[in-house]
Design a binder for these strands. Sequence first.
DNA 1: ATTCGTGCAAATAGTTTGCAGCAGA
DNA 2: TCTGCTGCAAACTATTTGCACGAAT
Lengths: 145, 145
Amino acid sequence: MARKQLHEQVGLRLAALDQRYTTSRRSLVEVLADTDRPMTISEILAARALPQSSAYRNLVVLGEAGVVHRVVATDDLSRFELSEALSGRHHHHLICGVCGMVADMDASPRLERALAEAAKAAGEGAGFEVTDHRIDLMGSCSDCR
Amino acid sequence: MARKQLHEQVGLRLAALDQRYTTSRRSLVEVLADTDRPMTISEILAARALPQSSAYRNLVVLGEAGVVHRVVATDDLSRFELSEALSGRHHHHLICGVCGMVADMDASPRLERALAEAAKAAGEGAGFEVTDHRIDLMGSCSDCR
DNA sequence: ATTCGTGCAAATAGTTTGCAGCAGA
DNA sequence: TCTGCTGCAAACTATTTGCACGAAT
């Protein structure tokens, strides 16, 4: 999605919640749009000077607006990425167990189909309504070997 | 696995690291063997009175010994389960986005095959060596609807 | 005996929040 | 203009650690 349209979309989503699209929120969206992997708070702050509390607060708001998505890896750092609704790329993650790095990985149709089937079975069995999924491949990245 | 053999296995794994199989460690293993879902620290402490610090410390040791495994869901509570090497059940998780509950879900062969293929492709593409994976179905549990 | 584990309390790390001043629609 | 956002600092929560005592080999 072009950068301009991206901001338009974000603006709309925020407006729907009576939230303003302020400079710091725009900053956060820019940073996340510029990268191809989920970013930690410190990475975000390294890219755009911004008080931590504003970063946290705005990421919450952007999360509620469906603009950003929180990724949980294995270390205890939150990572954030643009939501798939905005990035348009359904993907999963590679997670390095040594350094904690997280990289994006494109989804495979076959995997998605198998997953949909498993989700259906799980729902029937346990009265659980599946709305989303998360697939992570764990291992070691090239820097850690 | 029978309870007695389980403790034997745990004892061996701890011994391999020059660690003793003490009463509190045995307690932790028992609690985790008695349940079918990953447990938070507070759930564990509710089941067996034990100082928090001992629980945390021993879960680290049991983790290093490959006896327990830490499960990361979406809230910021660590959850622990018996490792698959000991439980013998390869499984994935259902995670409720409302209450944070985590339940076990048996793995499906088809899903595993599709995943193995995706893992191979990812490794080739990114110089990433895949050693494990994690699949979670997110949604809402029966209690939350 | 000597090494390792325990329990308490204090420390730490990441994240959240109260409040006074500032800015966007 | 008026409601909501910002920035600072203090608060909070989950987890980790230092240290002196106790237990296991």
